[in-house]
């Protein structure tokens, strides 16, 4: 099976001999992009969050063969150690991580989440369904798909709020 994935702007022509390869394993094992983490392989923890065609998804719940022609952004596409994105710098400043394993997923998720908000997507907590505001409660609700067992949640909220305010 031939699959073409555009990952972080670079086109990859993958020959998969197994349809069971998840998008997550394709990234980690076939493309050597280990920044996307496997926490549960079950769609329950968010460590594997990537952005596919502009939307955040759990890459462990999706097969690679379903993504022929898709545009995928992983943590490696958000910023590198020498050229970090504002969200990544904010996570460092606010200590929005400890062990660091859920962190790529948190940052990719937060990046996509802010874009969802800019596009006016409401959440179940939004008072105004047309123009939801970025309150701390909204951030908490929208980031609850990304588990952090070290439990840096308050720092994660601080980092995201600061990034959003800096970009506003």
């Amino acid at each position: 099976m031939d699959v073409t994935l555009t990952v972080n702007g670079a086109q990859h022509d993958l020959r998969l001999d197994d349809p069971r390869v998840s998008l997550l394993d394709a990234l980690r094992q076939h493309l050597d992009l280990n920044g996307t983490k496997k926490g549960c392989d079950h769609g329950q923890c968010g460590a594997c969050t990537v952005i596919v065609n502009g939307r955040r998804i759990n890459s462990c719940l999706s097969l690679a063969v379903m993504h022929d022609g898709d545009e995928i952004t992983t943590i490696e596409g958000i910023g590198t150690p020498d050229d970090l994105a504002p969200m990544q710098r904010a996570f460092i400043r606010h200590d929005g991580f400890q062990c660091g394993y859920c962190t790529p997923g948190q940052i990719v998720s937060a990046t996509a989440m802010l874009e969802e908000l800019r596009q006016g997507w409401p959440s179940q907590l939004s008072d105004d369904l047309k123009n939801p505001e970025l309150t701390d409660e909204e951030i908490r609700e929208r980031m609850s798909g990304n588990i952090c067992r070290c439990s840096c949640y308050p720092n994660i909220v601080d980092a995201i709020r600061e990034t959003a305010e800096g970009a506003a």
Binding site: L33, K37, I75, G79, T80, P81, L84, Q88, I92
Partner: peptide
């Protein structure tokens, strides 16, 4: 930190 937040 820079390694952890960039997945490296």
């Amino acid at each position: 930190g820079p390694l952890k937040v960039s997945g490296t």
